[in-house]
Structures are given as structure tokens and as C-alpha cells.
Simulated assay, not measured.
Amino acid sequence: MPDFTSSTGFKEWAYVCDALAQGQMSLILRKGGIHEGRGGFEWKHRQFFLFPTWFHTQADKLGWVPENAQRAFPPEEERTSVDIDGCATLEQVWKVTEWDKVAALAPLHIWNEDVVRERFVYDEESCLHIALVRAYRLPQRWSFPYAKSYGGCRSWVNLPADGIELAKEAGPAITDEAFADIAATLRSILG
């Protein structure tokens, strides 16, 4: 079980959050948001809640949509609440600068190749931050009011503290054996 001490949210596409919480994948590909600062994206937290973001063409940018994906969000400016189903712990991170290694990850995630390539070559340094994460499903959906501070193109947001208690009761999204297999596969590809 994760031992959460802070209530930090990691903003990611809603369907990716679903795939992680449902145990359908265990990695995150990240380039970073516009507001990440001069140093770019960093994995600042070892534990975090999976904060779902939405835009209307999200499903078109995926290789497949997770099972039981029942998300429907209004545009960000019309959101009134946040619904979180999972949390995760950061297990290992790689900064990958070789496209062949990034392309070899395709069976392990839900993004389509065009989106992954676009993120990889987004700025002057072609690379992606690949994170192996252990996802956990909360015992119940955690809902709370949406705040303006959650908006914008940033990766990390501060959430209400009451989520910490829910995280303590979260169960692993996949078995230890299945996670070990995925971790081994990822490490064999990325070194």
C-alpha cells in the first residue's frame, strides 16, 4: 500500500488515468507542460494522485481506449468538480533520447505513435521522460470541487488533504507478479 503524506495530483489525460488505475498499463510518457519552468519537466513527487484532464479529441489520439472508460468532462472553464479513481508511486524514471527505444514501448501504453512522436520531438531536445509507476485504485471515487488553481498546462497540482486517507486504503491495480513482469520488460528495453 502506498504511504501518502501529501495530497499532490499529477495531471494526465483522463483515459491514461483510467488505464493506470485499471492496471492496463504501468508507465507514463511525459514531455512536460508549458508552465514547467526553465528546467522543464521533473518528477518532483514519488507519490501522487492521478488527476484526470480532458479535451474532446483525446480518444482520437490513443491506440485504444481503456475498458470501462466512462469519462465525460465539459471544457475546463466549465468544470465544477474533479473525480479521482487512483494514485501511484514512482518506481523508476528514464530520460530517453533514442526514438527506437521509445517506439519499442508501444505495446506497453495506450498513446498512438503520432502523439508519442510529437511529444518526443516537441522542442530542441528530442527526448521523453519515461516513468515506471505502480498504480493503485482508491476504495471509492474521490470527488471534490474544481478550483482554478488546477487549470493550465502544468503537471503538478495541490489537492485537498482528505485524499491521503483514501490512498491508505488503495489496492494495487495489478498483482505483484504482473508488475514485476512489466518492470522487467521496461528495463530490458530502456536499460
Score class of each variant (00 low, 15 high):
3 D>W: 11
6 S>K: 15
7 S>F: 04
7 S>L: 03
8 T>I: 15
12 E>F: 11
15 Y>V: 04
19 A>W: 07
20 L>Y: 14
21 A>F: 01
25 M>W: 11
26 S>K: 00
29 L>P: 03
29 L>A: 13
31 K>E: 07
35 H>L: 08
35 H>A: 11
36 E>H: 01
36 E>R: 06
39 G>V: 10
39 G>P: 04
42 E>I: 06
42 E>F: 06
44 K>H: 08
47 Q>T: 10
51 F>W: 02
52 P>K: 08
56 H>K: 15
61 K>A: 12
61 K>Y: 14
61 K>V: 11
64 W>I: 02
66 P>T: 11
68 N>P: 05
72 A>K: 04
76 E>P: 03
76 E>Q: 02
77 E>Y: 06
77 E>N: 08
81 S>F: 01
84 I>R: 03
85 D>I: 10
87 C>Y: 12
89 T>Y: 06
92 Q>E: 04
93 V>E: 14
97 T>R: 11
97 T>C: 09
98 E>P: 08
99 W>G: 01
100 D>G: 10
101 K>Y: 09
105 L>H: 11
111 W>V: 01
112 N>C: 12
112 N>R: 05
112 N>D: 14
115 V>L: 15
116 V>H: 03
121 V>M: 03
121 V>E: 14
121 V>Q: 06
124 E>V: 11
127 C>S: 15
128 L>E: 07
130 I>Q: 09
131 A>T: 11
131 A>Y: 01
132 L>H: 01
134 R>C: 01
139 P>V: 12
143 S>W: 03
147 A>M: 02
148 K>T: 05
148 K>I: 01
149 S>A: 13
149 S>W: 02
153 C>E: 06
157 V>Q: 05
159 L>A: 08
161 A>I: 04
162 D>C: 09
164 I>S: 09
165 E>R: 08
166 L>N: 08
166 L>K: 01
168 K>F: 10
169 E>W: 06
170 A>N: 10
175 T>I: 07
176 D>V: 15
177 E>H: 13
177 E>F: 14
178 A>N: 10
182 I>M: 02
182 I>H: 02
182 I>L: 05
185 T>V: 13
186 L>S: 14
187 R>V: 02
188 S>I: 04
188 S>Y: 07
189 I>W: 13
190 L>V: 10
